[in-house]
Design a protein around this nucleic acid. Structure first.
Length: 111
DNA sequence: AGAGTGACCACAC
DNA sequence: TGTGTGGCCACTC
């Protein structure tokens, strides 16, 4: 454990910065962190983020805006519920206006 | 130390 | 929601 400067920590920091009503994708985070970071690693980090309530993993979806990780939440519907609560429209586990609500750290944080 | 796996992404068919 | 394959890096056995 000893978090130190693991990759996960960086991912968590970015995810925590995601504003309400917005969402981002694994690839965007990976692209933002760059450095050998791959989208799979972001997913892996999220897997470790399971016990971190401070990390809104429900705001992280795949590039299509599809809630691929919903199965990993407490309940399969929890992810959608949380997102809808923030005003995000979801149909069939997919964010409708994803490209409009997407929060790209590379643009928002401007490296 | 080699192989398998993963909450992905991009490309080809 | 099309399906299949390769690639990416870290972790586990």
């Amino acid at each position: 454990m000893a978090k130190e400067h693991s990759f996960f920590n960086d991912v968590y920091e970015v995810v925590k910065l995601i504003p309400e009503g917005r969402a981002t994708s694994y690839g965007l985070i990976a692209n933002y962190l760059g450095t050998g970071m791959s989208a799979r690693m972001v997913g892996w980090a999220m897997n470790a983020a399971h016990g971190l309530p401070e990390v809104p993993a429900h705001r992280v979806v795949n590039r299509n805006g599809l809630l691929t990780g919903k199965a990993h939440f407490a309940t399969p519907t929890l992810m959608q519920e949380l997102l809808e609560q923030e005003g995000i429209e979801i149909v069939k586990d997919k964010i409708q206006n994803f490209k409009e609500i997407v929060w790209d750290p590379m643009k928002e944080l401007e490296i």
